[in-house]
Design a protein around this nucleic acid. Structure first.
Lengths: 192, 192
DNA sequence: GCCGCACTAGGACACTTGACCTACAAGTTA
DNA sequence: TAACTTGTAGGTCAAGTGTCCTAGTGCGGC
């Protein structure tokens, strides 16, 4: 049960870091959520940074798994990119409450000048690269694909931030529609 | 000198909240920055929330002043909206380091469930309304104008977030160009 | 001169933080 | 039985937190 227990701790920490932020979440918070004593905590993780590291590793692994699933699920690059866009809708209720898990963690770590910032940014890079690959398959040059991937990421981030600020679910749906229109336009303008 | 001193404290707190985040910034940090003793601090502000309130009020006032200046400076609504877009470029070096002051504060307060969140969101609303007004003058319906204003805000937020994560100044310039193109396209498609 | 006032320094307070330790129970191995 | 590993509980530590108090400064008005 040791693996499962550790996994349980990381999962709760992941949730709390997302919902409350890293800085605000203390050992006591996590320990209480996992129902273990504060002291016992130190057996599994010997510093707060170590938990953060584990949480980021977990997110990276989950993201990898998700991207792989999309790769199988979507039967065209366009459909796969749609999977990416749709997470805004799928996770909308959480986004309204807590914002984007990616963006909020990254910006918090950036402010704290935390050493794990680079690892957190790897999450962004993962999406960036994957989106780029899909776009290359669609016929864009690697450079064009990367530019479009960054644009997609930025749009998603902005949508999440504003939806969070104004607690506006309709805004998400509206912008998702615009994002799809924009993407189709880009694909249409490809030389064939 | 009491006004000036208080103003000085708020200015430093504003800077530190932006650069380090609200949660992480302590009384000691601010007191040290202002060169006063920690205890003295309590004479001017009797709680941390009160400082936050003052900082937000300051930002609201500054934003108001900025929007008024744009109103005089830009001789057309299109030129005024360009002022808004250009702050991404003007503040790019700070954005690369700390992200967007608006978005990062809002998302942090949202996570902390802080009561001042609504006041912080007023900052967003200020831009939203001002942008909407400009777009109405351009000929859009109030509803269209608000939709476009929200879109503009979201794009800006996304650009700031991604630029911050990847520390990429070229990305800002690239996206600013796209934003201008998009806006001109919207204006062109207006019925006349 | 004296008083009142805006302002300041420094510390006390109760509490929380991450970090660390010891004690111990249960299970495994020898 | 004895030694060892694994996991847990609970307490302790120094440092730091926001809050609050008191003593005192300098200065303008009376």
């Amino acid at each position: 049960m040791q693996v499962s227990k550790r996994e349980h701790i990381v999962a709760q920490a992941d949730r709390l870091f997302y919902e409350q932020g890293y800085e605000f979440t203390s050992f006591a918070h996590i320990a209480e959520a996992v129902q273990i004593s504060r002291g016992n905590f130190y057996y599994h993780f010997k510093s707060k940074d170590e938990i953060l590291e584990a949480v980021i590793a977990r997110r990276l692994a989950n993201t990898h798994a998700m991207l792989d699933a999309w790769q199988l699920q979507g039967d065209s690059p366009r459909a796969r990119i749609d999977c990416f866009i749709q997470i805004l809708v799928a996770n909308s209720s959480k986004i309204l409450k807590y914002g984007c898990p990616l963006g909020s963690l990254t910006s918090e770590l950036a402010k704290l000048n935390h050493q794990a910032l680079d690892r957190a940014n790897d999450l962004f890079s993962l999406f960036r690269q994957w989106l780029g690959e899909q776009l290359v398959v669609l016929g864009f040059s690697p450079q064009q694909a990367d530019t479009l991937a960054m644009h997609l990421l930025a749009r998603s981030q902005g949508i999440a931030t504003l939806a969070n600020a104004f607690n506006d679910m309709a805004f998400i749906e509206q912008e998702v529609k615009l994002l799809n229109q924009w993407l189709d336009l880009q694909i249409q303008s490809l030389p064939r």
